[in-house]
Amino acid sequence: MSAATDGGSHDVELATYRAATDPSQLQTQIIRAIVSLVSSRSIEDIKPNSPGVSRSNVSRLWKEVGHKFVCELRGKDWGAQSW
């Protein structure tokens, strides 16, 4: 709470609270974990007590955004790589 100029008070939204409750932040973290080869079944272990980290939700999220990563891989010029 913060004091208002009229002597009353009002709630102030903290940027940290807004970031912590933003579902897109959690989704970004889940995608980063999967791209880093964390099993979708292990996301619950990494983010316990977070909404939307059940295996079915993580799988659904990966279905929605995973195609972007696959398209990036397919579009890369792998001939330029030195293995």
Rank of each mutant, 00 (worst) to 15 (best):
S82C: 02
E72K: 09
V70T: 12
H10N: 13
G7D: 05
L37Q: 13
A80E: 08
S40F: 07
T5V: 12
V38L: 10
E13K: 13
I43M: 02
Q81G: 01
V12W: 06
P23H: 09
S2Y: 08
V12I: 13
V58S: 05
R18Y: 03
H10T: 14
V38E: 12
E72L: 14
R55K: 11
S42K: 15
E13F: 11
I34S: 06
A3N: 09
W62C: 09
W83I: 02
G79K: 01
K63D: 00
C71P: 01
N49G: 05
R32N: 12
R74L: 06
D22M: 06
S54E: 02
T5P: 05
V58D: 01
G66W: 07
S9H: 13
T28H: 11
E72T: 03
D22G: 06
Q29E: 15
K68P: 00
S2R: 11
G52D: 05
G8M: 14
R55W: 04
K76R: 04
I46T: 09
S40K: 09
S42H: 14
F69N: 04
A33D: 11
Q29S: 14
T28D: 12
R60I: 00
K63I: 01
D77L: 03
L14Q: 08
L14A: 09
H10K: 15
S40W: 07
A80I: 05
G8D: 13
R60F: 00
S56K: 07
A20Y: 08
A4T: 12
V12N: 12
G75W: 00
N57S: 14
W62N: 10
S82D: 04
I46S: 06
S50R: 15
S50C: 14
A19R: 14
G79R: 00
